[in-house]
Amino acid sequence: TRVETATETAWISLVTALHLVLGLSAVLGLLLLRWQFPAHYRRLRHALW
């Protein structure tokens, strides 16, 4: 049971790290898009909202 718990903890930390990385890359990508294509971003936002 001790090994299982350790594996579970490792998986949880791995998944958390993955989610953090994905979230950060998504935010960075959005910022980059907004910085590179302001007109396109505004049009996209206008279409979405």
Rank of each mutant, 00 (worst) to 15 (best):
T1Y: 10
T1W: 12
R2P: 13
V3F: 08
E4W: 14
E4D: 08
E4S: 09
E4F: 14
T5N: 01
T5P: 00
T5I: 06
A6H: 08
T7N: 11
T7P: 09
T7C: 02
E8P: 12
E8G: 05
T9Q: 14
T9R: 12
T9H: 15
T9A: 14
T9K: 10
T9P: 15
T9W: 13
A10P: 14
A10S: 12
A10L: 07
W11G: 02
W11K: 05
W11I: 10
I12E: 00
I12D: 01
I12F: 10
S13M: 13
S13Y: 12
S13A: 12
L14C: 06
L14Q: 03
L14E: 01
V15R: 03
V15F: 05
V15L: 10
V15W: 07
V15T: 12
V15K: 00
T16S: 14
T16P: 03
T16F: 15
T16L: 14
T16C: 13
A17C: 14
L18K: 04
L18C: 07
H19E: 06
H19L: 02
H19W: 05
H19P: 00
H19I: 03
L20K: 01
L20Q: 05
L20Y: 01
L20D: 00
V21C: 10
V21M: 12
L22T: 08
G23S: 10
G23M: 11
G23F: 14
L24N: 00
L24E: 01
L24R: 03
L24G: 10
L24K: 05
S25K: 04
S25G: 06
A26R: 04
A26Y: 03
A26H: 00
A26T: 13
A26G: 10
V27L: 13
V27I: 14
V27Y: 10
L28P: 02
L28K: 04
L28R: 03
L28S: 04
L28I: 05
L28D: 04
L28H: 02
G29S: 13
L30K: 00
L30D: 04
L31T: 13
L31I: 13
L31V: 12
L32P: 06
L32G: 01
L33D: 01
L33Q: 04
L33H: 03
R34P: 02
Q36V: 15
F37R: 05
F37T: 04
F37K: 03
P38Y: 10
A39M: 10
H40C: 11
H40Y: 09
Y41M: 11
R42D: 11
R42P: 03
R43H: 07
R43A: 11
L44M: 08
L44V: 11
L44T: 05
R45G: 04
R45M: 05
H46F: 06
H46S: 07
H46K: 06
A47T: 09
A47L: 06
A47P: 03
L48T: 06
L48Y: 05
L48I: 15
L48F: 06
W49E: 00
W49R: 01
